[in-house]
Write a protein that binds this DNA or RNA. Sequence first.
DNA 1: ATTTACAAGTGTTTATTGTACACTTGTAAA
DNA 2: TTTACAAGTGTACAATAAACACTTGTAAAT
Lengths: 225, 225
Amino acid sequence: MNKTSEQKQQIKLAVDCIIFGFNNNRLELLLIHRGFEPEKGKWSLIGGFVGNDEDLDDAANRVLYDLSGLENIYMEQVRTFGKADRDSSGRVVSTTYSAMILKSEYNEERVGKYDAKWFPLDELPELIFDHDEMVGSAVRRLRRRVRNFPIAFNLLPAKFTLPQLQMLYEGILSETLDKRNFRRKVSQMNYLVRLEEKDMSESRKGAYFYTFDEELYKKELNFNL
Amino acid sequence: MNKTSEQKQQIKLAVDCIIFGFNNNRLELLLIHRGFEPEKGKWSLIGGFVGNDEDLDDAANRVLYDLSGLENIYMEQVRTFGKADRDSSGRVVSTTYSAMILKSEYNEERVGKYDAKWFPLDELPELIFDHDEMVGSAVRRLRRRVRNFPIAFNLLPAKFTLPQLQMLYEGILSETLDKRNFRRKVSQMNYLVRLEEKDMSESRKGAYFYTFDEELYKKELNFNL
DNA sequence: ATTTACAAGTGTTTATTGTACACTTGTAAA
DNA sequence: TTTACAAGTGTACAATAAACACTTGTAAAT
């Protein structure tokens, strides 16, 4: 910025969080029920205003904690929405952040306390303001990034099976993947290590558990699915 | 956003424009000389505050016009910088936009009026605040996008030669490209149409002029270099 | 003990795309 | 007529992506 402003600026700055989870082989979104006007009763992203002395990134994390109890979640900025009339309650510019979390660790019980709810991506309720656009851009970004960075593991437990991983990818990308091609690529990633233990809950044969080894990944830094 | 704010928010919202040009086979950046404190005398991006009833995108265009005279420039949002202490003059959050323009249409004469100046990307002066970070992220985004979208043509005149185009790409990516491989890819793009006319200024033989046909491109929508 | 049901697991072939590499051509100027 | 020089052209090899079907291991049922 550079020029001295003419008259007092009256714009509020907010953040909105797009929280992805994975359940029943579908990508889900955490929304909260809006308990006040305007748009009372509709659903919205987890959002709030930025504090005067708060880094924008910190604001996103604080707002997420305040409204959902979720802590220490790694979020990334997506983009900023700044249409003058986007929020019917006044002039608000909002920067979106997104994160992927393990839904099973944020289950119905904890969710209920905050009037929050998980929705499958293709069954979203009506959202306030331009939150559907926000979701759209976050999903597009997720689909782009999930192919080149090992970020999808955030949606799975520390131990997961390859069928699980593949279904996760199919859910995110909403396309089916060839099992053998998928597994070939996975087997080239040395940082995906197979454990001795098997998951016997989904089949008679059982599927080997794998883990994502962060340290090993840092040595290669390449990922492609 | 969702929660009612506790105390009055005092954050100013700004935009900063990263304007790319191409000259002498190098990527350049348009900067303006800062004529006031703080950081007086240093160079900065073209930036200013967002108006109360102004769309964020419009603010970027208006600021660009006010400070450089450039009009009808297509800009895209890059990202938003929001560290609490990023601007030493107070709390300012700034969203960056970038554009590519034809440097020859914005020459020394017009530039001078605005105390602006073109700098090759690898010879940038010291910039104020976090503007170097802003430039970095815009350059990374440019390098990513220039391979998959026909955006680099904005940096060239309507008629250009293939040697020119290749040098442009080499300048942007800062790597050398194989001439034959480059030209093979170009020749697969039917929307890059060869004219009868040749540019005789750079060689005895002369190089054919080409143009980018927007309408034809829209039918294919695929680009890869 | 044997059979059944079923998801987990495994290789090969073909097509597509990327990469490396060197000579010929057309023209203006000498 | 020769020279200088950038523009222009094709082929072979390597790497990556995509298509495709059968075998294996185990628990449960008989």
